[in-house]
Design a protein around this nucleic acid. Sequence first.
DNA 1: ACCTGAACACCGTTCAAGT
DNA 2: ACCTGAACACCGTTCAAGT
Lengths: 196, 196
Amino acid sequence: MANRSYHHGDLRAALLEQAGRTLREKGASALSLRELARDLNVSHAAPSRHFKDRRALLDAVALLGFARMAEALAKADPGPEAGFRARLEALARATVDFAVSERELIALMFSSKADTDALDDMHEAWMRLAAPVYAAIADGQRTGDVHAGDVERIAYSAFFTVHGVANLASIGVIPEADIDQALGDALDHLVRGLRP
Amino acid sequence: MANRSYHHGDLRAALLEQAGRTLREKGASALSLRELARDLNVSHAAPSRHFKDRRALLDAVALLGFARMAEALAKADPGPEAGFRARLEALARATVDFAVSERELIALMFSSKADTDALDDMHEAWMRLAAPVYAAIADGQRTGDVHAGDVERIAYSAFFTVHGVANLASIGVIPEADIDQALGDALDHLVRGLRP
DNA sequence: ACCTGAACACCGTTCAAGT
DNA sequence: ACCTGAACACCGTTCAAGT
């Protein structure tokens, strides 16, 4: 209770960080602004200076999640030299790993947000996420692994499958022990389906 | 306020029905037991007789959702006579239609439920849902449209793709106008990938 | 500019008591 | 068996007031 004006005015960042922690531990529905404020030793009304309401805070956390996921994908991308199948597999595995290790975050990121006005930011984050997949498909077309056609549409189609595995693995429909096999099966079908 | 002992003791059913309505209109996070009770003219403590807590009510609603989705899929299944591609397409379209027209319900059904003890019921509901897909894959193997192998694994692989489209369409990542095209692309790749 | 304290209108859950 | 009323410990949001 000794330190006033918490964190040099960096309450916003502190809130986001703490929100990320409690999200991971207890899920979005159990995240309360008042508890966050308590954890950071500020009054319960303080968060409203930085986020207009609970939804705005959660949107900001989701946006950070997209950035982190994009970074994870970019880091996992072995580049075109690895070969098409290996590259797609690396990207897919990184996606599924992220979804499984950040269940609550991914649930927040991919929960309905139709009425949100923060949709432009989301779209940009999404583009960054999709970039390595686009690159993989485009390179696949050059190496003869992928049939001709609109890169974006083909990339989306690939993403559907990977997202399906990631989502179902994340919520436990696919048992932890079967995830590798399930992803392998999905990739086998996907790679064959993409061939010229 | 005149009618006491609401609905001949069928408060449980009335709660589920009303919960379904407010879920559709305002989403799971905005569903309050007290508001439900108000809508049904019972005291705010009444629901606890039929559902031990809020989570139990939502689980029951999700379970009904699986039953309804299974029914929708069974009804949409044209049977083996339609041919493999047409059959798979009918099932996929029914899945996506359900996901888009029942956004909030599908979000509830496919939200993390790892710690729930109502997991056995969920598993049974899931099996009913998967039945037509299993049948389509098994028949596809007989007609030479699908490669040999474990039916369950192949069916799951098909489901990943369709679920991916359904989920992303449901939350608005795929714009409404592009859903048909996206599903078409996904099915093209899937059917090719499944071939012997 | 940023935070506090009090106030308002909500919650879920529990439990004695009523019918 | 089923429901009520009161109580408890929470919420999100707003707004005057402080620094």
